[in-house]
């Protein structure tokens, strides 16, 4: 057994993660063809690479099947209700920065804050006979955020992609989604509420609090930690 590191299996997140580790002298690469989800590690002893979907990394960390994993704060907080007991952040990777925010149509000039949204929820339900729909894939985070703000009479509807389009398509009245520049929101004629920031997220290296280490794995972790410390 060795120190198992889970990394998103595709796209910019994988490439940037590889670059980030390379700067610490740890060279990660995908073995074989582009279609094969196996990886190799060089430059450090006792570490192995597991390529996974970014969304599965929180679960694997919480189960202790991987020792380390790179994924966004958003996914950790959404999928692990008690994340601080299950995982520990080792380093922020300074990329993949994005905010989980709550947005409504720009056209709603009467809505700037969560207070306004709550009042509109009540009126909307009276008028239309159903609760005001908020499209999101971050159900737990959004629900908890709105509960603490005391917003009621809304319904969360699941949207796993193209969330910003749901308002124009009339399958939702508002959205809660990840944004980095806000450009997609603007293009879809949406605006962020003044107090609508739910979570700031970035790619982060996490350590599982429940995984078991053997001597080789522990040595690899110590080695990695001292390299990160030297770099900081």
């Amino acid at each position: 057994m060795s120190l198992k590191l889970g990394v998103p299996s595709k796209g910019r997140l994988m490439e940037k993660t590889f670059d980030w580790f390379a700067r610490a002298g740890v060279h990660l690469s995908r073995s074989g063809s582009d279609r094969e989800y196996a990886g190799t590690v060089s430059g450090i002893d006792g570490m192995s690479l597991v390529l996974l979907s970014a969304g599965e990394i929180p679960r694997e960390l919480a189960a202790g099947r991987i020792h380390l994993g790179v994924t966004g704060t958003d996914l950790i907080h959404e999928k692990l209700p008690r994340w601080d007991r299950q995982v520990e952040p080792l380093a922020e990777l300074r990329f993949g920065e994005a905010d989980l925010i709550l947005a409504v149509p720009q056209f709603w000039v009467d809505v700037q804050t969560l207070d306004d949204l709550d009042a509109v929820c009540a009126a909307f339900r009276r008028r239309h006979g159903h609760r005001l729909r908020i499209a999101t894939k971050y159900h737990r985070l959004v629900r908890e955020f709105l509960r603490q703000a005391g917003v009621s009479d809304y319904a969360l509807v699941d949207s796993q992609g193209a969330t910003e389009g749901t308002v124009a398509n009339e399958t939702a009245e508002a959205v809660a989604d990840i944004t980095s520049t806000g450009e997609t929101l603007r293009a879809n004629h949406l605006k962020i509420l003044d107090d609508g920031l739910i979570l700031r997220s970035q790619a982060t290296l996490w350590q599982s609090r429940v995984s078991q280490f053997d001597a080789a794995g522990r040595a690899a972790l110590d080695d990695l930690n001292s390299r990160l410390l030297a770099r900081a």
């Binding site: 149509p105 056209f107 000039v109 009126a123 909307f124 005001l132 009339e170 009245e173 879809n188 004629h189």
Partner: peptide, 19 residues
């Protein structure tokens, strides 16, 4: 309501005016 802002979604202009 500034000009040029498209009216999207199920909540209509009358509802905004009423609020």
């Amino acid at each position: 309501v500034p000009p040029g802002v498209p009216q999207i979604g199920k909540r209509g202009a009358d509802e905004i005016e009423a609020r």
